[in-house]
Every structure is written in structure tokens, then in C-alpha cells.
Write a protein that binds this DNA or RNA. Structure first.
Lengths: 151, 151
DNA sequence: TGTCTTGTTGCAAGTCATTTGCATGTAGAG
DNA sequence: CTCTACATGCAAATGACTTGCAACAAGACA
């Protein structure tokens, strides 16, 4: 059976607690967009991409779906220092750590967490139990870096 | 001369680029509040504390003052994953890194950055020039930790 | 000490991202 | 096929700022 067209169950879509998560056409498309994206997306980004396939999905639907997935632990929401918007990615694809370019405003994922080890011992000393952490590096990417030197 | 009452110059208040920063009564109080706080404050927090001393400062004045100081490099603004509000602290007092308790929602500063060293080499590999970074640990503080075990 | 320029303030209205109330529509269990 | 809990669109509401504008005032300079 063509995996592209067989009936998709919830389990095919995302990981996490999804009992009672009803798989509608809109949600299927929203999830598809997120699975296909290599980078974190804002709700507006998602809507834009969704509507290029099937028009007329409401922005509030996108938000509600993203929120639902976040609270079920299947989606990660990230905020940056100088951007009021939230960025979303599926937990299976989540990068957790980013470099954000102050020149072109792109987010570059960091594969390996450079701090995983040192964190726990730091927290232990303070009686803190760490369940998660976020690390964002701000600076200039290879391209913007050379552009700056020309100024 | 009583340092509490002598004429205060800009230099007494904060560090950083402050040419053209006019020291008014409102700003003096706002800065005082921030100097006296051990933890990062939201604009609303600042207003609340300011107005307990001298009423009738407008929220927009607080925002404008905080923004001004941020852009002059004297103030640090921090955003967290699950809170739409910005937190502010004077750069001289800034902690840069925090543990955020998911139980009581307090922010605990981390004195020593546990990742300073590993960051640059990670970024170098990717051609990225790092100018700043943010690290936030999420979890449970000593108190909330023991509370959870009772449930 | 008075003048003047430039920066500051209050207030009300505006913006932007996100959330919600409600009436209608529908996935999927039985 | 039915029925009910969950999903959706739309418009209005919210929360956290941000801005236009007219009135004010710090601090440089005369």
C-alpha cells in the first residue's frame, strides 16, 4: 500500500499524547507543513504554506492546533529576544538550540547541545531539578559576517 | 555630603552610553527600583513599585525609559518560553542566565555561565560569530521539588 | 538667573500576536 | 447511521506593548 495515500492514523503524524486528538483535513495539512519544514515556523508562516495547498483555513485554527500539540508535548514553542512571535516545530524534528543571525534574522539549528553536561551539575548545586533548557546564540552567520566587514 | 541627597549625575545611575539621557524625577525612581531589585522585573512590576513611592507615572513612560536604556546598552531584556512579557534588569546587575521554576514561576539567577567555553568552538565550526547568548533552564526549585513529591 | 533647544511625559488611540465566545460543522466511536 | 465530543470560522476581545501629539521641563549656554 502506498504510504503516501493509505489512511493515516494519529500515530503516523506525530509522537506524544494524542488521545482525543481528532485528525481533520486541516490538521493533517498543518502537520504536513511542519513535517516538511526544516526550520521553525511562526503561526503565520504555517498559515501561508497551508493556504498555498488548500485555501481558507483560519489563522485561529492554526493557533489552536499548534497550542493543542504543544500542550500534548508533540510540539515545541520557542521565543527569541527581539521577536514578539513564537516559533514552532514538531518535537521529533526539534532542534532545541539555535544560532540567530542579527543580520539576516535567520535561525540556524545547532545539532549537538554544547552544554548538556555542564548544566546538571550547575543546577544540582542550587537544588534545582532541570527538566528542560533553551540555548540561543546571537551573532552573525557566515554570509552576514563577510558583508559587515565590507562596510 | 550625603550621597543620598547630593545632586545625582547620570554616571551615578547606570553604566553605558548615556549622552543625551536626561535625568528626570521619574527616571531616577525607575532606576532606583531596578537597582534595588534582586530579580528581573516586567514593566508592570516596575510601575507597581514606582507608584508605591510616587504615584501617577504612566506605563508608557516606564516602557520608554526601559527601551531607551536597552538601546543604550545599560539594560538587559529577557524573554521566556511561556510568558509573553519581557523582563528587565540593569546590565551592571544582570545575571544573563536563569533557572525558571515551572512550579512557582520564579526566576533564579545563575551566577556562573556553565557554557561560556563550549559555545565559541561550536559556533566557529559553523562559521558563526557569536556576540551574545541566552541560556534558560526550566525545572523545579528546591521548594517546589519537595512539594511535588508529596502529591 | 533667564532663555532656548531638545529630550520627556501623559493620554488616548493604535498595533501586533494571540486568544476566545459562540453558533455551526464533523470525525470517529458504537 | 447516529450521536456526541471535539473542531472550525468569524468577529470581537485580550495583553503587551508602541506611537502621535500637545504640553512640559532638564540642562546647556548666555
Amino acid at each position: 500500500m502506498d504510504s503516501e495515500h493509505r489512511h493515516q492514523t494519529v500515530g503516523d503524524q506525530v509522537s506524544g499524547q494524542l488521545k482525543g486528538f481528532r485528525m481533520t483535513r486541516d490538521r493533517r495539512i498543518i502537520l504536513q507543513v511542519l513535517r516538511e519544514s526544516g526550520i521553525p515556523l511562526t503561526a503565520e508562516d504555517v498559515l501561508e504554506r497551508v493556504n498555498s495547498t488548500v485555501p481558507d483555513i483560519a489563522l485561529s485554527t492554526v493557533y489552536r492546533t499548534l497550542d493543542e500539540l504543544v500542550s500534548r508535548g508533540s510540539m515545541q514553542r520557542t521565543l527569541l529576544s527581539n521577536d514578539g512571535r513564537a516559533f514552532f516545530e514538531l518535537v521529533g524534528h526539534a532542534h532545541r538550540h539555535y544560532m540567530v543571525c542579527l543580520g539576516c534574522h535567520q535561525m540556524f539549528p545547532i545539532r549537538k547541545c554544547p552544554v548538556e553536561d555542564s548544566i546538571d551539575s550547575t543546577a544540582e548545586d542550587l537544588g534545582f531539578e532541570v527538566t528542560d533548557h533553551s540555548l540561543v546564540l546571537y551573532g552573525y552567520c557566515r554570509h552576514c559576517r563577510s558583508g559587515r566587514q565590507l562596510e
